[in-house]
Simulated assay, not measured.
Amino acid sequence: MVKAIGLMVLATLCIAALDTTAKYLTDTHKLPVAQVVWMRFVWHVVFSAVFLWPFALRPRCDRRSPRQVVRSCLMIVTTALNFIALKYLQLDQNIAIFFLMPLLVAALSGPLLGEWVGWHRASAIFAGFIGVLVVMHPGIGDVHWAMLFTLGATFGYALFNIATRYLAAYDPPAVTQTYTPLVGVLIMTPPGLLYWQWPDQWWVWLLFASLGFWGGLGHWIIILAHRLAPANVLAPYIYLGLIWMSAFGFVIFDHVPTWWTIAGAAIVILAGLYLLARERIAEDRERKRGAARSAGAEFEPPQ
């Protein structure tokens, strides 16, 4: 359990490093978002080829391949919208809105997977939306249009997670992990070449390579962590991302979180933790019911 939690903490640090690098390339170096997104997937493929494919990381074509492609497209859209938003928003603002993702997964699991939530969890989802409104504070100050891109990225990532849960019942994690960067490279190559700008410094290529490294390593560590511990144990640790994002934002971009961001993030995090607590209670009840049914069947007299 401790090892799984440690892996999850490391994964949140990797994702924070990915977003920080993307913002540095698109904001500070003014590189096109399409180019940065393309490089993110190109180097993710390189990372997978070097570190993961020797361990039977091989995609296959079957009747579920189109669903894998759809899942990959969701990640491409999510990455593009997120990188556009990062160009204009502070890192802490972006991640505070992104914390809505677990709540969106719970809300969308009903119509898409048949996993409907009760009023307790519905209240948590509603509170999460209130928290995002606090971060955006419409009507009180200027709402940056890039926040709408973050919302779109959050919605896309929620659908991506639901697709991952669905495909987990059919394909091993290695296969699912492989499709994402491969499809990303195929789709993003035309716009990446169209908007290509040659870096003015040689070390920018190292930053390009780090996009794939942080993204590939982060997602793979998340898979490893979930093999060692259940999701409801690991989920609260995603909120450590706010600490990493705030630290990177302050050190690299001299950004200080606003009170709106802190207050809104606190509401979203509390709502997410309450949702996780309700899910644990529901799982415990189902486990006890299953044990009771098993005990009843064991002592049922013969007919």
Rank of each mutant, 00 (worst) to 15 (best):
V37F: 02
A11L: 04
L31N: 13
V134Y: 07
A122V: 02
W259E: 14
R67A: 13
P301E: 05
P190S: 01
A169K: 14
W205G: 06
F160M: 05
D284R: 06
L81S: 14
Q93T: 10
I125D: 04
G128I: 13
L194G: 12
A297R: 02
L113V: 07
V45N: 02
L25E: 15
N232Y: 04
V2Y: 13
R121D: 08
F213G: 05
A174M: 15
A168Q: 15
A168I: 11
E283P: 00
D19S: 08
D62I: 13
E283L: 01
V2D: 06
R71V: 03
G290N: 03
I252W: 07
T261N: 04
A106W: 08
E279A: 00
A265N: 05
L240V: 02
I243D: 00
A282N: 04
G272T: 08
V9M: 05
R40P: 02
R121Y: 02
A169T: 10
V204P: 01
T178N: 10
R71W: 03
W205I: 09
V50E: 00
I269N: 03
M8W: 00
V70S: 06
D19H: 11
A107T: 13
G216M: 11
E283K: 10
V37N: 02
R60T: 10
F99V: 10
A34T: 06
G192Q: 05
A96Y: 00
Y237M: 04
I76L: 13
F160E: 02
I243M: 01
A163S: 13
V37S: 09
Y24W: 15
R287W: 04
I269S: 01
Q201M: 07
R63T: 14
Q303N: 01
V2K: 15
D92R: 00
K87H: 11
L108V: 14
M101F: 06
L167T: 12
V37A: 14
H219K: 02
A263G: 07
L242N: 01
F51L: 08
R227Q: 15
F83Q: 12
R58T: 11
M8P: 03
P66S: 10
G141R: 06
G241D: 09
T150F: 06
V268E: 06
A231Q: 08
G296S: 03
M1A: 15
A34G: 02
L182S: 09
A265D: 03
S246V: 01
E300L: 01
Q177K: 14
I97S: 09
S246D: 00
K87W: 05
W196D: 03
Q201E: 15
V132T: 13
K87Y: 03
Y166I: 09
T150Y: 12
L31C: 11
W38H: 10
L186Q: 06
Y195G: 02
V9A: 04
V233A: 12
A282C: 00
A263P: 03
A4Q: 09
A107W: 07
F41C: 01
G156A: 10
V69S: 12
V135C: 12
L18H: 13
P301N: 05
S48W: 08
